[in-house]
Computed example of a mutant assay.
Amino acid sequence: METTRRTIPSMLRETMLPDEEFGDLYHRLVGTSNIIQKIESHMRMCLSQQSFNAWSLRHYSKLSESVLKRSLLFLGAPGTGKTITAKGCADHYARTENSPVVFLEVGEPRSKFVGESSKNVKAVFDYARSIAEQRKVVLFVDEFDSVGVSRDTNQMHDDVAAMVNTLNQHMTSLQTNPNVFIIACSNLERRIDHATKRRFDFTIEFKRPDADQRKDLLTRLLENYNFDEDEIIRAAKKTKDYTQDDITRVVNLAVENAFAENAPVTNEHLAEAIEDIKPTGEYA
């Protein structure tokens, strides 16, 4: 019997996990071990039904009803590691649980055509639901504030309000599906609809790395360039308020400038790059 081939919506990117690229992201995570542990535990509780059932039967006389919404909201400034954490943790789950996972990354579902935005949101959730009939699914929505935009304004277009209503309805309907887990990211929390925020189990805030975390990140990024510990500590002090992405860009610029001079990367190259690249602004 032939099966009907599903057509992936144009705003979705599909990746089968485990994946080497995603796995590499997991090892690049710095200073977020407590956050990662919390995410991995929650993901396993939501997606590993067998593990949850075993725990429930062990501690209770009957199977406990799960009230989990199977969704997390990541908040933080751009470059603080929200996206690579989502991808890295999803890949780590697939590897450690020996369970293939389909990672669906949502692009921009909003459309300039009336009624199309709601249709696009529905198409995303319908596709995720169809995949979940056979496999685990992690649905990842970056810049979530553009989709779950607050309706607390008199200037909102009816089409946008309809899109948010559709989003809320489908998020609620997927909460009973044990094969779907939703991760949404935003750096503009104030723009997210209040009713939409209530559909997440909890939110996780991604902060800028502290001095020790910056030192750890710089040590990893500069490990092949013969920098001593004192130089790295000085660079960590100079990059206060920088995000992980900012610091990565600093090192990349220092390497690029050294290459242009046909010289080894020095502390001067690093200092110049720090001067040229300013820390990313705060989110609201």
Rank of each mutant, 00 (worst) to 15 (best):
T7N: 13
S10E: 07
S10G: 04
M11Q: 08
R13V: 09
M16G: 00
L17H: 03
F22R: 04
F22V: 10
D24M: 13
D24W: 08
H27M: 10
R28A: 03
L29K: 09
T32R: 14
S33V: 08
N34R: 14
K38A: 07
K38G: 02
M43L: 13
R44P: 00
R44L: 04
C46Y: 11
C46G: 01
C46V: 03
S51K: 15
S51N: 10
F52S: 08
A54K: 15
R58P: 08
H59V: 06
V67C: 04
F74N: 01
G81E: 06
T83A: 11
K87T: 02
A94Q: 03
A94N: 06
V102H: 07
G107N: 08
E108F: 15
E116G: 05
S117A: 07
S118R: 09
K122A: 12
F125E: 00
F125Q: 00
A132E: 02
R135S: 01
F140R: 01
E143T: 08
F144N: 00
D145C: 01
V147C: 06
V147W: 06
R151Q: 04
T153H: 11
N154C: 09
Q155L: 15
H157R: 03
A161E: 02
M163A: 10
V164H: 07
V164C: 06
N165I: 10
N168D: 02
S173M: 12
Q175P: 01
I182S: 02
C185K: 01
S186E: 00
N187W: 10
L188S: 05
L188M: 12
I192Q: 00
D193T: 06
D193C: 06
A195D: 00
K197A: 09
K197E: 02
R198C: 13
I204C: 04
F206L: 08
K207G: 03
K207R: 13
R208C: 09
R214A: 04
K215Q: 12
D216K: 14
L218K: 07
T219W: 11
T219F: 06
R220W: 09
L222Q: 04
Y225I: 07
D228R: 06
D230N: 09
E231Y: 14
I232L: 07
R234Q: 12
A236W: 12
K238L: 10
T239F: 15
T239Y: 14
K240I: 07
K240A: 05
D241C: 10
T243K: 11
T243R: 08
Q244F: 15
D246W: 15
N252C: 06
L253P: 08
N257P: 12
F259W: 13
A260E: 00
P264D: 00
V265D: 02
N267L: 08
N267K: 12
E268W: 09
H269A: 01
H269M: 04
L270A: 01
A271H: 09
A273S: 06
I274T: 04
I274Q: 03
E275C: 15
D276T: 11
K278N: 01
K278Q: 02
P279G: 05
